[in-house]
Computed example of a mutant assay.
Amino acid sequence: MDSATPLHRTPVTPELLRGALDVEEGPLGLVPCRLPAWARGFADPQLLSAQAQPAGVRLAFRTAATRIELTAHRTHMAFRGVAPRPAGRFELLVDGEPAGQVEAEGGTAVLIDAATGSVETDPGTTQTVRFDGLAAREKDVEIWLPHYERVELGELRADAPVEPLAGDRRPRWLHYGSSISQGSNATHPTGTWIARAALGAGLDLTNLGFSGAAMLDPFVARVLRERPADAISLEVGINLVNADVMRMRAFTSVLHGFLDTIREGHPTTPLLVVSSPYCAMHEDTPGPAALDFGDGAMRYRATGDPAEARAGRLTLRTIREETERIVAHRAGSDPHIFYLDGLALFGAADAEQHPPADNLHPGPEAHALMAERFAAQAFAAGGAFAGR
């Protein structure tokens, strides 16, 4: 087939999406959402923004096409006077193997002035994402969407018919966490540690990693309770510290409640609680975290007083200790709950070798390392997800 071959036009519908829990209608088409509508009604602006960034969301279909096009419009954020985050990427997988990437272009820019708090919106162009040169045979195709940009999807075009994939028989993995799980500073959608681990283990991932918004909200626990899952994991800690939202007395109760709610819908599903990977600025210093633009680059710093940890202000060290204690306590009556120390995924020595550029979020090399270590601990014999 060549470029003159007429293209079959297929509107993007929910049946083509994997990893999304809902959609919203936009002027161009559908916006994938990672929370259902009822839960979005409880969400604050940070969580609303994060859940509309389609980490782990992909179009999945079967086709013999050699050429595929997707109409898409991105919305991305930037701070005025600061180097922007690298553009997101659309990533193609064919029969589960990487087959190409296209950088996101144009779209709507949301410009934030950190000094004044003002926000400006700069509308941009809609993009046609194109993959060509594909083998002329029937194949399973996935297009993974940029994991840190809101994306509105219009029309799918291909030089052969497109059909939604039949029911996915892979085990379903439901994961909750922070920006570390959403994939901040990973360079492409399947480069996040959680996506790497899921693809390596052959699991159907739903990623509920929400940048800056993993606050153990009860309504998010209800979402987890109601979603089908063969394995569930929670990455807990960092946002509670860097937002300084509670003290230790509240954390203990809230984590128990979060786990109780999940267990109402998944009484025997393997449930792995993962504490935060290493973050030097918050290991012993409470939040809140503050942004620092001193040299034109965006970095974070902790502003709390380490002495106040004794009075219950949260640090990563104290949260890890309490999380491990809570899981051990519950394991006495729940043989299907497990704990994984985040330092086993990314520790102090790793941070020296791969220092986070912004003092907070692990970089691409760290994502690869975390995925490898998670797989070795969670999926190996005796691990929480062994046999999944």
Rank of each mutant, 00 (worst) to 15 (best):
T125H: 06
R18S: 00
H367R: 01
T66Q: 02
F293N: 12
N359M: 03
T71Y: 01
D122M: 09
M215S: 09
E142M: 12
L291M: 11
N359Y: 09
G167N: 10
M246N: 06
R249I: 07
A197F: 08
L153V: 00
L134I: 03
P164M: 01
A357T: 04
R137N: 06
P171Y: 15
G212F: 14
R9C: 02
L271F: 03
V245G: 05
E235A: 14
F251E: 02
P98D: 05
G26A: 02
I112Q: 05
S233M: 08
D95E: 03
Y300Q: 14
L314V: 06
A166H: 02
G117D: 13
G106Q: 06
I319A: 04
L255A: 05
L203Q: 12
V110L: 09
P161R: 07
G265C: 13
E120W: 15
G88L: 05
R172C: 08
A250T: 06
E142W: 03
R225Q: 15
L271K: 06
S3K: 09
T268E: 12
A52R: 13
G106D: 11
L340I: 07
P164F: 00
T323C: 00
I194G: 06
T128R: 08
V245H: 12
E149N: 04
V23F: 00
A72W: 01
G296L: 10
H256C: 14
Y176V: 03
L255T: 11
G265E: 12
S181C: 12
R80A: 11
L7W: 08
T261R: 10
P364R: 07
F219R: 08
F131N: 02
S333P: 15
G287F: 07
P86D: 09
